[in-house]
């Protein structure tokens, strides 16, 4: 029905339009578009006097041309609350993460005005700072198909100099990344924008096109089973492929470990709520991690 109202809105603005064009615009077959236009033409309030129906030229419609003579005030409806949350939330998030294309802010402003009501979603500025100068170097290289030399600090806190071929800026859960070919790793990488300390444009042309695989395609090394107090279950709900079984007091969480250090760090963050950790291998990593922290903290 959203699509049918959309066709009315399109015809109101653009006048007579071939059914084929409408079908393409709204992503349906010509047959479907035609049948929906007929349905529109039959709609109204009984006794369906001429001024109580949407008025189509049915002869033209038979010839494959949609001609709307009178829409009777029927048109596309405003965004619903959920639609506004989805679209404005995502757009504002892309903008804040530094991964929105030019013009996104204007689109966002116009949608907000169009929604009119008290916005059900507010997007606040994040703490991560993505320097515009770094972003500008990356977008210029994406557009120009060239490489960039960057200084980067990885998640394990190692600082490296690398040459990358940037393909796309993406926001994952509100955090900005660049998808690229990394010449140092000789592989595709998704690098966090806020961890790029410096970026310098290179004349060198890109040698690899964008990856067809989505990022984070790491294979799990082994399966972990962790029992935590029920109240700490949230700490595991965002791990992809996690299964959680809850009883009165505890939650039993199973997940694939792709990076042992990362998993140990996650367990540390809810340590007082841990009941048991398996297998031994993960317990050993957790013990090493805990010892290192205690040595540093001097307690």
């Amino acid at each position: 029905m959203v699509r049918m109202l959309g066709m009315v809105a399109y015809l109101e603005v653009h006048g007579p339009t071939p059914v084929a064009t409408l079908a393409e615009h709204f992503g349906v077959t010509e047959q479907r578009a035609s049948s929906e236009l007929w349905t529109l033409g039959m709609s109204g309030v009984p006794p369906y006097l001429p001024d109580e129906c949407l008025d189509f030229d049915f002869d033209a419609l038979d010839e494959g041309l949609a001609v709307l003579r009178d829409s009777q005030g029927v048109s596309q409806v405003r965004l619903s609350g959920q639609e506004a949350v989805a679209l404005t939330g995502a757009l504002a998030t892309l903008i804040d993460a530094g991964t929105a294309p030019e013009g996104a802010a204007q689109v966002l402003r116009r949608i907000r005005e169009a929604f009119g009501d008290v916005a059900p979603v507010t997007v606040l500025e994040g703490a991560e700072h993505v320097g515009t100068e770094i972003r500008d170097v990356l977008t210029a290289a994406i557009d120009g198909g060239s490489a960039v030399a960057i200084g980067y600090v990885d998640a394990q806190d190692r600082r490296t100099e690398r040459t990358i071929e940037p393909h796309r800026l993406v926001a994952i859960d509100g955090v900005g990344y660049v998808e690229c070919w990394c010449r140092r790793a000789e592989d595709y990488r998704t690098l966090r924008l806020s961890r790029i300390e410096s970026a310098a444009a290179l004349a060198s042309e890109q040698t690899h096109g964008p990856s067809q695989e989505p990022g984070f395609a790491l294979a799990a090394q082994y399966e972990a089973t962790v029992v935590v107090a029920r109240g700490a279950r949230w700490a595991f709900e965002d791990i992809a492929g996690t299964s959680i079984v809850v009883d009165d007091e505890t939650a039993t969480v199973s997940f694939g470990v792709t990076d042992e250090d990362w998993a140990a760090a996650r367990l540390m963050s809810v340590a007082p709520h841990l009941v048991s950790v398996a297998p031994q291998r993960l317990r050993d990593a957790l013990a090493r991690h805990a010892d290192a922290v205690l040595a540093a903290q001097g307690a």
Binding site: V2, R3, L5, G6, M7, A9, Y10, E12, V13, H14, T17, T21, L22, E24, H25, F26, Q76, V77, R78, L79, S80, Q82, E83, A84, V85, A86, L87, A90, I111, A114
Partner: peptide, 17 residues
């Protein structure tokens, strides 16, 4: 996703093809 799609369809209704 479904809400985003519906909202998208509404907003692009009147854009010239």
């Amino acid at each position: 996703e479904a809400d985003a799609r519906h909202g998208f369809a509404k907003l692009i209704s009147a854009i010239a093809h």
